[in-house]
Simulated scan of single mutants.
Amino acid sequence: MADKTFRVDVVSPDQMLYSGDATFLRAQTTDGEVGILASHAPLFSELAPGGCVVVTMADGTKLAVAAQGGFLNVTGTDVKVLAESAQLADEIDLAAERAALEAAEEGTAAYLQARSRIRAVEAVS
């Protein structure tokens, strides 16, 4: 099983959101949604506005992060998610974010942030 895992670090400027082993990582990038498994080819991509990152940890549990801006860096042995700002799904008030999404104009920063947070919560619901 150990050869099927890889190291993942999810960070924002103000905090380390996750650091540990994973079996799978899914992220929305500006090039489309990508899935990462152990030994994935090197990749560097920009995270999509309004997207999220979902990490399947080595024990099978999922961790979702609403990430606004930043980059995904994949090497042969590890993955780094470098977000401009990020929030864990379990810290998000889904009702408040749905209200914010409806109140915001499509394409604005507020709209994209709410959409990102809703996606993160729904990814682990």
Rank of each mutant, 00 (worst) to 15 (best):
60 G>S: 08
53 V>C: 03
99 A>R: 10
52 C>M: 04
34 V>Y: 03
92 I>A: 04
60 G>P: 01
98 R>L: 12
33 E>F: 00
75 T>W: 13
98 R>S: 05
12 S>F: 00
93 D>C: 05
102 E>V: 01
42 P>W: 01
110 A>Y: 00
16 M>L: 14
86 A>K: 09
56 T>H: 02
81 V>E: 08
88 L>N: 14
95 A>G: 07
23 T>A: 08
46 E>W: 00
96 A>H: 09
19 S>I: 01
18 Y>P: 09
115 R>I: 00
81 V>D: 12
111 Y>N: 14
125 S>T: 08
95 A>F: 00
125 S>G: 13
49 P>T: 05
96 A>L: 03
75 T>P: 13
85 S>E: 15
7 R>V: 03
117 R>N: 12
125 S>Q: 12
115 R>E: 15
6 F>Q: 14
8 V>A: 13
68 Q>F: 03
89 A>G: 08
3 D>E: 14
31 D>A: 13
56 T>F: 05
46 E>Q: 11
114 A>M: 05
81 V>K: 08
117 R>Q: 14
123 A>L: 10
110 A>I: 00
26 R>M: 04
43 L>Y: 11
46 E>R: 06
16 M>W: 07
53 V>S: 05
73 N>G: 04
11 V>R: 08
86 A>D: 11
17 L>R: 06
78 D>E: 15
35 G>V: 07
71 F>D: 15
66 A>S: 14
12 S>L: 04
117 R>P: 12
77 T>Q: 14
78 D>A: 07
30 T>G: 04
30 T>M: 07
59 D>I: 01
6 F>H: 13
23 T>N: 07
53 V>F: 00
62 K>D: 14
95 A>R: 09
40 H>D: 05
89 A>C: 06
117 R>Y: 06
79 V>C: 12
21 D>C: 00
58 A>C: 02
54 V>W: 02
25 L>M: 04
4 K>Y: 04
65 V>R: 09
56 T>Q: 11
37 L>F: 05
10 V>H: 08
95 A>Q: 11
99 A>P: 09
86 A>C: 09
46 E>C: 01
10 V>K: 11
63 L>E: 10
94 L>R: 10
52 C>N: 13
35 G>L: 03
87 Q>Y: 04
67 A>G: 06
88 L>R: 15
109 A>S: 12
11 V>W: 08
72 L>C: 07
24 F>Y: 13
80 K>D: 15
67 A>I: 03
110 A>P: 00
54 V>D: 10
4 K>C: 04
44 F>E: 10
117 R>K: 15
57 M>K: 15
53 V>L: 03
98 R>E: 15
107 G>S: 05
59 D>R: 04
26 R>H: 02
123 A>E: 13
107 G>P: 05
11 V>K: 07
6 F>T: 14
124 V>H: 04
16 M>R: 15
62 K>W: 01
122 E>A: 03
34 V>C: 01
78 D>L: 00
15 Q>L: 11
79 V>R: 12
102 E>Y: 00
74 V>G: 05
88 L>Y: 09
43 L>Q: 10
113 Q>G: 07
98 R>N: 14
67 A>D: 12
37 L>C: 02
92 I>W: 04
16 M>E: 15
125 S>F: 00
70 G>D: 11
41 A>G: 01
